[in-house]
Design a protein around this nucleic acid. Structure first.
Lengths: 232, 232
DNA sequence: AGGGGTAATTGATCAAAATCAACAGTGCGG
DNA sequence: CCGCACTGTTGATTTTGATCAATTACCCCT
């Protein structure tokens, strides 16, 4: 892999506390590859041979059943995916595809499992990461069960707005089809949900969204730290 | 705690491989208490002071937002809950209440965290447990996003039927209101969903359900191992 | 600049699910 | 035994969201 990426990979939570020797061993076993846009990386049901790290680009995790498909999560750099399947040596529950040209680090699952047995700090980091992933899905699940589509969109906009500096405007990080699927609605309904939010100061200009009446939007959204705050 | 319960607690996956000394230390720090029916054990947002183990009875995990409430999971004996919050020393994302008279083991979170630092086997068990919990929520989430209410019910019935010996009949483990909330639907819609399933051989007699046409039900349900099989 | 393809929007319609209201069945306590 | 509370069921209605169809807007490409 490019040596310039090394410190970045090392700096993510999962790897930062591990011993130098463990990190070296893992990197030695790993593959580093660049994929074009829209390439399938893994398919749900397949055995979890690798842990994936997105170094550049972006990866969509999605799931399928009954000819229906839904986006489960988007993984930006530097992020890992399907840690749980890797650790349990089980089948992937989600499929993954690139949604941009992406540089991906692939670490054989058995090397991950070997490393965590040897390296206490790595085991601790994995526990932390798994607990965080678990809580993230629980929050998603709560959102879907407790909120309407419009409310989910409103809160998602507030989240992006926070992430991007709270300056009254935000850029959607994914295209609207993907956002719709992520929020659990049809693309058409996302359009309509944006219209519903217009009286609450939400102006849409392509991927650029302006929030002109934050108090009104927050009144409608009723954001809840135990759903929307990803830091807890 | 009653010495008769000890082997049972010890036998669950989370505790079975840990060192004797670690188990003793944890038990010494733990509280063991019996609660009546319908007692609130924890409230979402509270700091995770304890890891809970249901030894007898049953506990409902639920979440709230906007004056709405939904059942997230039911924890039968012998099961633990809110492990992730305990490990991250974070706020609970879910509330818990007994739904029967229940005997509960409460282990201070700091003792859990101390134990996993000392005991490698315990750390490994926690990783396994967390990965399993994560995958369980992912499956729930997939079910909710990819299936209609009737489909979720059909698959849930097939699951209970499998658990209870595949003999053409099953007993609902919870009351119908709870089941409805668990499946993400209103109680009225659960009733109607049962009616929808009548032509597929589903006969309802209180909590006793008869499945008289398994092939037909399976055709409708389209069970999917990556959603419905809790063993993978 | 023109053309082709994709994403997004809009409208119309349909299906799914929530809500409101009423009522039957059950179990409990007086 | 009766009334009361609770669960579950049914019907009517509304809301929400999905689907189908058509159109528009926007890129990208040469």
């Amino acid at each position: 892999m490019r040596s310039a990426d090394l410190p970045e990979v090392r700096s993510i939570h999962l790897f930062q506390d591990m011993e130098e020797a463990t990190f070296d061993a893992i990197l030695k076993a790993a593959y580093f590859q660049t994929f074009p846009d829209h390439v399938d990386l893994i398919q749900e049901g397949d055995p979890a041979d690798f842990l994936y790290v997105v170094v550049e680009g972006c990866v969509e995790l999605f799931a399928t059943s009954n000819d229906r498909e839904t986006t489960m999560a988007m993984v930006p750099p530097i992020g890992t995916f399907i840690l749980a399947a890797t650790l349990k040596d089980a089948a992937y529950l989600m499929s993954a595809r690139t949604c941009q040209r992406s540089r991906i680090l692939m670490i054989p699952s058995e090397d991950i499992r070997a490393a965590l047995k040897k390296d206490k700090a790595f085991a601790a980091a994995i526990i932390w990461e798994l607990a965080s992933c678990y809580r993230a899905v629980v929050k998603e699940h709560k959102s879907l069960k407790l909120r309407t589509g419009v409310e989910r969109l409103a809160n998602r906009l507030l989240r992006y707005h926070n992430d991007q500096g709270r300056n009254g405007s935000l850029l959607l990080p994914h295209d609207k089809r993907t956002l719709a699927s992520l929020l659990g609605m049809a693309p058409e309904n996302l359009s309509r949900a944006f219209n519903t939010l217009k009286p609450f100061g939400v102006k849409v200009d392509g991927a650029r969204i302006h929030l002109d009446n934050l108090p009104a939007l927050e009144t409608l959204a009723k954001p809840n730290a135990l759903i929307d705050d990803r830091t807890i």
